[in-house]
């Protein structure tokens, strides 16, 4: 049993439990510790990461850095949607492109795909190995490097630091 992974899983489950109950009564905390221990005994192998590159402090700092970037991109995406909804005759040039990513971890790829879906004009269709297939409303460039910079450049480093 990998003790570190087990403890990480347990703490995350316990935070879930605290959020569900929103109570700090002793009964609830005891129950939460028992249940999250039981559940993490069975599921820590599939839930936790194998070998994260950074230690926990760096990962949390990266997470805190990632959230404002993500929210700003999301607000931009919504302004873009608003522009298109109010004036649907805007020029669109849709297409499905393939970009590659350097991220290794599964969770990092998942969060990269979700972030791309929530940022302006892009929608992740599929992830295969190191390639992401993206439906882009307005293809601004056909050069792979520029595409990668425009779509996933902001997130890759931060997500690579988190997971």
């Amino acid at each position: 049993m990998n003790f570190k992974r087990f403890i990480t899983t347990l703490i995350i489950y316990f935070i879930f439990w605290l959020a569900y109950t929103t109570s700090l009564a002793a009964n609830e905390i005891i129950m939460g510790i028992i249940l999250s221990t039981l559940l993490s005994v069975f599921t820590y192998k599939s839930f936790s990461q194998k070998n994260p590159e950074n230690n926990i402090v760096v990962r949390i700092i990266n997470l805190i850095k990632y959230i404002p970037v993500f929210i700003i991109e999301m607000v931009k995406a919504n302004l873009d949607v608003a522009r298109r909804v109010i004036n649907p005759s805007l020029p669109i040039n849709p297409g499905i492109i393939k970009i590659s990513t350097d991220l290794k971890s599964d969770y990092a790829k998942l969060f990269l795909a979700n972030s791309i879906t929530l940022t302006p004009g892009t929608l992740t269709l599929d992830v295969k190995d190191n390639n992401l297939f993206i439906h882009w409303i307005d293809i601004e460039s056909t050069d792979k490097d520029i595409q990668k910079n425009l779509i996933s450049g902001k997130f890759e480093d931060l997500l690579g630091g988190i997971f």
Binding site: A77, V85, I92
Partner: peptide
């Protein structure tokens, strides 16, 4: 805005984009 986007966008993939982004935020 998301609901409007779903009604007004021209094709399915644009509708998905508008719907997801606006309703999530």
């Amino acid at each position: 805005l998301g609901a409007l986007g779903i009604v007004r966008m021209p094709d399915l993939y644009n509708r998905i984009q508008a719907g997801t982004k606006a309703t999530t935020l």
